[in-house]
Design a protein around this nucleic acid. Structure first.
Lengths: 211, 211
DNA sequence: GAGGGACACTAAACGGGAATCACCCAGTCG
DNA sequence: CGACTGGGTGATTCCCGTTTAGTGTCCCTC
């Protein structure tokens, strides 16, 4: 059969991203869109278009949409965990460590609002358990790292009330509440963000910890 | 004209709910489903089926799905506002009022998790502004009612740091953080809910207010 | 060189969401 | 009687995530 110049079935077919390469391209495009437009805005088709590939192609590299976004989120949370580990290594008193970690946490949330919402503000009910297992484990490790200095404070007998675990959970959830409201209700007339974070931290730490 | 038994075109067509009646039926069914299955689970089709009517019929009485669920949520928030007004009327010191209101708030959240999430945990970006205007106004009125005793405390010079508005926002968002995490991450191993709420309230009030 | 996989990729389709369209039917009123 | 009205409908549209069946291309072996 003569190799007649059969016009290439679809002229602009992507040159076979060599597997791993394409995977990275997809993640990059997905991250860009997800950061800009959030979970609902980061459509499979939009991501595929951005990569220049058919929407079906994404399923070559990822099980489904959630896996793509969870992978992105996991990278982000890993950065948060790294921050916590760095702070944990600093030779300062545990209360300062707690404060630094919570400040880093809130800054992370405000810098990555869509990731933060996906991980910390959604029930994840429609997401099968194995898919978010990594994320949950990373989140747990973050909380464990944060709990360490709180336990140290408790061991020093400086907890005004409640157990170390309760104090850690309250400190965390208090800061979570502030940033989650700042993120989800930006149009509300809030006081200055930095001042609010300071009042929250001062209030909680003063209220929970004696010196 | 003899009332001949003409078989009713579609045997099971609902007997013309007389407008306002049908509206109530839809709201009731929607509330039931929404409470049981949340925002995503409360499908237009499911609601319509529960009422025994075609999905299109819902658009006779409501602009869209969000209007139905916002109307339900508004009813709930109105109950919360009523609670706040009742507490505001009690002849007790402002700190107790603040505590009672926050306790009622958290109890409300845990008792109405789906409504709470819809109103306080979602960005409401895809919802046109006029649709949530009522909800926003109700929410603001709740916050205003809650702010009153905080301002009284500030007027007594008993605020440890920050302005009255900042203190109110921090108190609110701290409690919001706790209940929103309890709602969205129920599988996490939390300490006892009541104790957590107490630690949060004690901590924040002690940290923000002097006596 | 010619098979034949394996693999990246694709078009087309599916099912299920919200929302719209054009139409229909039963009363009511002039 | 006849037109109007308002609740109601089935079919349709559009978009979503996902599945299926098939296509093009590379590489490895004979």
């Amino acid at each position: 059969m003569t190799v007649v110049l059969k016009k290439p079935h679809k002229s602009a077919r992507k040159p076979k991203g060599d597997g791993h390469l394409r995977r990275g391209e997809i993640l990059a495009a997905a991250e860009r869109i997800f950061i800009a437009e959030g979970y609902a805005g980061a459509t499979i088709r939009k991501i595929a278009d951005a990569v220049g590939v058919s929407s079906t192609a994404l399923y070559m590299h990822f099980r489904d949409k959630d896996q793509i976004l969870m992978e992105i989120s996991n990278d982000a949370i890993e950065r948060l965990l790294t921050l916590n580990i760095e702070i944990a290594a600093q030779p300062i008193d545990p209360v300062s460590r707690v404060r630094l970690m919570l400040e880093a946490y809130m800054k992370f949330a405000l810098d990555n609002p869509n990731t933060y919402q996906l991980v910390f503000c959604s029930t994840g009910e429609h997401i099968s358990q194995d898919k978010i297992a990594d994320t949950l484990e990373l989140g747990d490790r973050c909380f464990e790292k944060f709990s360490e200095p709180v336990h140290q404070i408790a061991a020093q007998g400086r907890l005004r009330s409640g157990s170390a675990v309760q104090a850690a959970e309250v400190l965390w959830s208090g800061c979570h509440g502030l940033v989650s409201l700042l993120i989800t209700k930006p149009s509300r007339g809030w006081s200055d963000q930095d001042q609010l974070m300071k009042v929250m931290l001062d209030g909680l730490l003063y209220g929970l910890v004696t010196d």
